[in-house]
Design a protein around this nucleic acid. Structure first.
Length: 202
DNA sequence: ATGACGATTTACT
DNA sequence: GTAAATCGTCATA
């Protein structure tokens, strides 16, 4: 499958969040193992005006530097002392908007994903729907961490996106974002996008 | 130097 | 449904 080009990412975050549904996120490990999943859930973060965004109010720090950079790069951050989450940077540079990837339908390398996810807890076998059904789960399954923060999804070899089957607009379910109750009126805005009925959504 | 806080997940009552 | 886990980051001093 062809890789998505820079042009694909050069759009506003809402349009990009919708367009990312159905595309394949691919992670190539250091040993060459290929892991892949179909994007089934995303959230748009609108930058300086968006109280839920890390770049709210023009906040620009070492952590969120990638958000301020060019479109088509990854923004990977560490949260709650134990989890990582991955975003795709939109627009930019200078417009700190991004799309959080919240869930994948696993496509390739499920055994390896399962091994990564089984790190803690009992050795019971996880169901396919438990592998990537959440932003920190998919980061763990694909071994995404701060080492991949800022990675170029267009030119890099370890992390990129490939063209998938188009998702009809009518199949997209829109809801408020998860986990941003602190964001006042921004907590209620319809900025979360899912493929309706997909069992791999968080 | 210190303190409060997460764009979450998991286990347990 | 509630709470613990767990620490980098950032604002305040």
């Amino acid at each position: 499958m062809p890789r998505l080009s820079r042009r694909f990412y050069l759009r506003d975050p809402v349009t990009l969040a919708r367009a990312l549904l159905g595309q394949a996120l691919v992670r190539v490990l250091d040993d060459g193992t290929r892991l892949a999943g179909r994007i089934v859930e995303t959230e748009a973060y609108l930058g300086e005006i968006d109280r839920a965004a890390h770049s709210y109010g023009g906040r620009r720090t070492a952590r969120n530097a990638a958000m301020w950079g060019p479109a088509g790069h990854a923004y990977v951050y560490f949260i709650y002392g134990l989890h990582h989450c991955m975003n795709v940077v939109a627009e930019g540079p200078g417009k700190p908007t991004a799309v959080l990837i919240r869930a994948l339908e696993p496509l390739e390398g499920l055994a390896r994903m399962r091994a990564h996810r089984a790190g803690r807890g009992p050795a019971r076998r996880l169901r396919d729907t438990d592998l990537c059904s959440g932003p920190a789960k998919l980061a763990q399954a694909l071994q995404l961490d701060r080492g991949l923060d800022g990675a170029d999804l267009v030119a890099g070899d370890a992390l990129f996106l490939e063209r998938g089957a188009r998702v009809a607009p009518g199949r997209i379910v829109v809801t408020p974002r998860i986990g941003v109750a602190y964001a006042g009126e921004w907590a209620d805005k319809p900025l979360r996008f899912c493929i309706g009925g997909n069992p791999h959504v968080s």
